[in-house]
Amino acid sequence: MMLARAIHFDESDMNVFHSPARTGEWCISGGFEFSNWTEGDLTGKAKQAFSNGWLGVETFGRVTFVAVTRIEPAELDALTQALAQHFVTIYGAPSVEAAMPAAREELNQMMEMCEEHAPNTVMTVARELTPAGVKESYRIIEQRDAALDMFAVHGGD
């Protein structure tokens, strides 16, 4: 199974997001956060999070770049539980049990995207508001000559 971890090429995420994700934490798109947003919500650091921020599923901070890497089943179970709890705490889901299907769906969507790519493939997300809602697109940056660990840290066991 593959999922994505937050990576940082420099310190810019620390300055552009209200709450930056921690290097190495597991990430998903997190576009659900913006489902009810309007143009009026797109200002300052909130606009940056909307425009190109992946959501860390440990700190619930944002990051610009993620890298594909292998995830263990136990880690996935813990992330699913944490995301379901986030849905209860922040979005008012009635219980963790009721939120588990939505949490699984979010993580499965990200895993499906990651399964198509080799480890260390870097990805970015871009969002825009449309009359139909939030539209997301993804950019894939394939690993080339240099090893990713030569210029980015993305965690590991």
Rank of each mutant, 00 (worst) to 15 (best):
S35A: 14
R104P: 03
P119S: 13
G156F: 05
C114E: 08
A84C: 06
Q85F: 01
A78S: 14
T38Q: 10
P119A: 12
I140E: 06
A152K: 05
A132H: 12
A67P: 04
N108E: 15
R144T: 14
S51K: 13
W37E: 04
F17I: 00
A93I: 07
E25V: 03
L107I: 15
T64I: 09
R70F: 03
E128C: 09
K45L: 10
N120W: 03
R104V: 09
F34A: 00
V153S: 11
I7Q: 06
A99G: 02
I90A: 13
R127L: 11
E72F: 09
E72M: 10
G61L: 02
G30Q: 03
V16I: 15
E72N: 11
A21D: 00
A103T: 09
R139P: 02
E106D: 10
M1Y: 13
P119E: 15
M150D: 13
L76G: 00
D10K: 01
T130M: 11
G24S: 05
A126D: 13
A146V: 07
T124N: 12
V153D: 13
G156A: 10
G61F: 00
M113N: 06
E25P: 02
K135H: 11
F17E: 02
A98R: 14
E25W: 07
P94Q: 08
E72K: 12
T38H: 07
H18D: 14
V134P: 09
T43R: 10
D13K: 08
K47T: 00
R144D: 15
S95D: 05
M14F: 06
E75D: 15
G44C: 09
W54G: 01
R62E: 02
E115C: 01
R104C: 11
A118H: 03
I140K: 01
E33N: 14
E72V: 10
F87N: 11
A82E: 12
G92A: 08
A93G: 09
Y138L: 05
A102P: 01
Q81E: 14
T121R: 09
T80Y: 04
T80P: 01
T38C: 09
